Amino acid sequence: MKQHIGSIALVVADYDEAIAWYTRVLGFQLLEDTDMGGGKRWVMVSPPGASETRLLLAKAATPAQQERVGDQTGGRVFLLLHTDDFWRDFERMKAAGAQFCETPREEAYGTVVVFQDLYGNRWDLLQLRQG
């Protein structure tokens, strides 16, 4: 049996600003933007070259959801963006205006830095050590 996580829903304040940030700053691809009626859209983005897991940008529709925008995990790192070239992506993201929470560091598992998305969700940019 084979399974994988197909999508992760990320609660956002606004579809268009989220699409702009994820495509411009992270370099993600906009895979789908379908009007579902009633102000709801099905918006799917993914990192370049990704074949399985995608982000579903889901606009907050209730006060409880609006409270969670930018804090889906209580301040912990929420998502880990793996890369095959840490320094290429770090420099490109920095030039595009990404907000980094620390300086890059070497760990036993690889090179990593924490950054925030446009709403404050914390992410790791991570290149795993080979071997």
Results as ranks from 00 to 15, higher is better:
99 Q>S: 11
3 Q>P: 00
77 V>L: 07
90 F>S: 10
96 A>M: 12
117 D>H: 05
67 E>S: 13
59 K>C: 03
115 F>M: 13
48 P>W: 03
69 V>I: 09
106 E>P: 00
93 M>W: 10
25 V>D: 01
82 H>M: 10
17 E>R: 13
41 R>G: 07
25 V>I: 09
93 M>Q: 11
34 T>L: 11
35 D>P: 05
43 V>L: 07
128 L>T: 07
72 Q>E: 13
87 W>G: 07
117 D>L: 03
66 Q>T: 14
103 T>R: 11
88 R>T: 14
57 L>A: 06
58 A>D: 10
90 F>E: 08
11 V>H: 00
92 R>D: 13
84 D>G: 13
109 Y>H: 13
38 G>F: 04
123 W>F: 15
28 F>Y: 14
27 G>W: 03
94 K>Y: 03
72 Q>I: 04
57 L>V: 10
5 I>Q: 12
10 L>K: 07
70 G>K: 06
52 E>I: 02
24 R>C: 04
32 E>T: 08
91 E>C: 04
69 V>G: 01
72 Q>P: 01
21 W>F: 15
88 R>P: 01
5 I>P: 03
36 M>L: 15
16 D>H: 11
80 L>H: 03
15 Y>I: 05
2 K>N: 12
55 L>C: 05
55 L>F: 15
15 Y>K: 05
64 A>S: 11
87 W>P: 02
108 A>D: 14
122 R>S: 08
125 L>H: 00
114 V>L: 09
84 D>A: 14
65 Q>A: 14
87 W>F: 13
4 H>P: 00
46 S>V: 03
124 D>H: 15
24 R>P: 01
130 Q>W: 10
7 S>R: 14
30 L>T: 09
16 D>A: 10
23 T>R: 13
79 L>S: 00
40 K>I: 09
129 R>G: 08
39 G>H: 08
37 G>A: 06
37 G>P: 03
97 G>W: 04
60 A>K: 01
86 F>C: 11
